[in-house]
Design a binder for these strands. Structure first.
Length: 270
DNA sequence: CCGACAACCTGACGGC
DNA sequence: TGCCGTCAGGTTGTCG
């Protein structure tokens, strides 16, 4: 589930629990996700105080007063649980605060990752090298996008998923943004007009902001029974709606590209 | 550069 | 009810 809005929602949910708090205990119940955790993860975190939480692309950042940042990625199935009544299967990592709060990192498929990296050198964290601009930041512009896509023959959908072009979009929101912009996902990226790229940038902003807003309300109240962060249902226009009618009177179609489903309306996306 | 495919894992769901 | 195939929001690598 985790694209940028889900990670942002997760970080916002963890912030009031962890920020300014001392980490009283760390329990590693399984030592690896996609890669092994750092050997000394527990020692390096225990006793540290969390100074800030943040996000870069689809990665969550937990800074500590020891100069380390815990960088986590949620993969396909990862999520944090806040003050769960009891531990569940796939709660691989448990962090307890001095205030007696408890959060767990649960990831059934284990495509996620956890790493510790010097806070002042995060730009050198290998997954961050070469990342494109934040889609909600000032550097994600129609001009920048046009420059990055110039001459590219790959589909615009593929390019939106390329984290070097823009960092944080995943399959759902790439699909939804293209729908909102009225652009066919199959169109060669380099042939999309500057005017339509401007529309796409606006659509990306709108889709992500709406998703974050939808998640925010969930987080504020911890509405999910077991405190699971990043779970919310935003209204999606085409994703997962193969065969359903589009508002324009057309029908939502699906095709597979690069092993991933793309949903679109051929009538209103050109 | 590009598309296709596989690999990494587990769980949910539909069909029979 | 149970078994089996398919699919899932990500990343990384290979191959032609």
């Amino acid at each position: 589930m985790p694209e940028l809005p889900e990670v942002e929602t997760t970080v916002r949910g963890l912030r009031p629990v962890l920020e300014g708090q001392r980490i009283a205990g760390v329990q590693v119940r399984r030592p690896d996700l996609r890669r092994a955790f750092p050997e000394d993860l527990g020692q390096r975190l225990t006793g540290a105080t969390v100074t800030a939480l943040g996000r870069r692309a689809k990665y969550g950042l937990i800074d500590t007063d020891r100069g380390d940042t815990m960088v986590f990625h949620l993969g396909m199935s990862g999520h944090w649980r806040v003050d769960p009544a009891e531990l569940k299967p796939h709660d691989h990592l448990v962090i307890e605060t001095g205030a007696g709060r408890r959060v767990t990192l649960n990831d059934a498929r284990r495509f996620g990752s956890v790493e510790l990296w010097p806070t002042d050198a995060l730009a050198d964290y290998p997954p961050f090298v070469g990342l494109g601009p934040e889609p909600l930041g000032p550097e994600f512009t129609a001009d920048g996008l046009a420059a990055a896509l110039k001459g590219r023959s790959a589909s615009i959908k593929t390019m939106l998923l390329d984290q070097r072009i823009v960092a944080g979009l995943g399959n759902i929101y790439a699909v939804e943004a293209l729908y909102e912009a009225g652009i066919s996902p199959r169109r060669a990226a380099g042939t999309v007009s500057r005017k339509r790229l401007a529309r796409l940038v606006e659509a990306v902003h709108h889709v992500l902001e709406a998703a974050i807003a939808a998640g925010g309300s969930t987080v504020r109240s911890y509405a999910s029974p077991d405190g699971e962060l990043g779970h919310f249902a935003m209204q999606l226009h085409v994703y997962g709606r193969e065969g359903e009618p589009c508002e324009c009177g057309g029908t939502v179609k699906r095709y597979v590209e690069g092993g991933r489903s793309t949903f679109w309306c051929p009538r209103c996306q050109r």
